[in-house]
Design a protein around this nucleic acid. Structure first.
Lengths: 94, 94
DNA sequence: ACTGGTATAATGTAATACAGAATAGTGTAT
DNA sequence: ATACACTATTCTGTATTACATTATACCAGT
């Protein structure tokens, strides 16, 4: 979700849809919103509320400096863990 | 940890060491044991207690049928998630 | 007024991660 | 004998996370 937000201003409902398009077909809004709220709580995002002409106002997020760092940090950890796991998976026993 | 156990009978303390060798240098015993206990609780492992000549008895684990399945299931999910994440990481925006 | 799609917030439960402290067995050096 | 280092497991507790459900609200078309 941090990565998705980093691609450009977006809001919860849209993030849900993007995740579904990405293949995470069964994510529901509730899950996404708990995470965006966590981002808010941890001060990783800037918030801008804009009205929509097809529904209630949208809360647009962008990453702030801390959010960028968190994202980079995530990818660092991801690269580490995924390389280790793939190693484990691929090269058989011992 | 399921994968490590699937490679052959092992016990908590040894699993901790293997994880450290794999690069997860800061895992501590407490963490590992909560997970082995979860495996027990979920009936994914067979248990065999054997005495040791260098310390207290060891609780050896092997995967049972359900454990094997759980492991295969894990790899399925892992392959899915990691391919999606790498896609997100590699091919830039949109 | 009602429906369907868009949008967020509030609430609750179960699982997970992780650390720290307590306990105990064994061999070796003092 | 006893103290120490290493091996080994268990117990306990806290904070976070995952995830779903429900409630609420805005808008357009019928």
């Amino acid at each position: 979700m941090l990565e998705i937000i980093s691609r450009g201003e977006t809001y919860g409902y849209e993030i849900t849809q993007q995740l579904r398009e990405l293949g995470f077909t069964d994510v529901v809004e509730g899950t996404v919103y708990t995470i965006t709220l966590r981002f808010e709580k941890n001060n990783l995002v800037n918030i801008e509320k804009k009205r929509s002409n097809v529904g209630p106002p949208r809360k647009f997020y962008t990453l702030n400096e801390a959010g960028q760092e968190q994202l980079e940090n995530f990818w660092r950890k991801w690269n580490f863990v995924s390389s280790k796991l793939n190693e484990l998976r691929d090269k058989g026993g011992k």
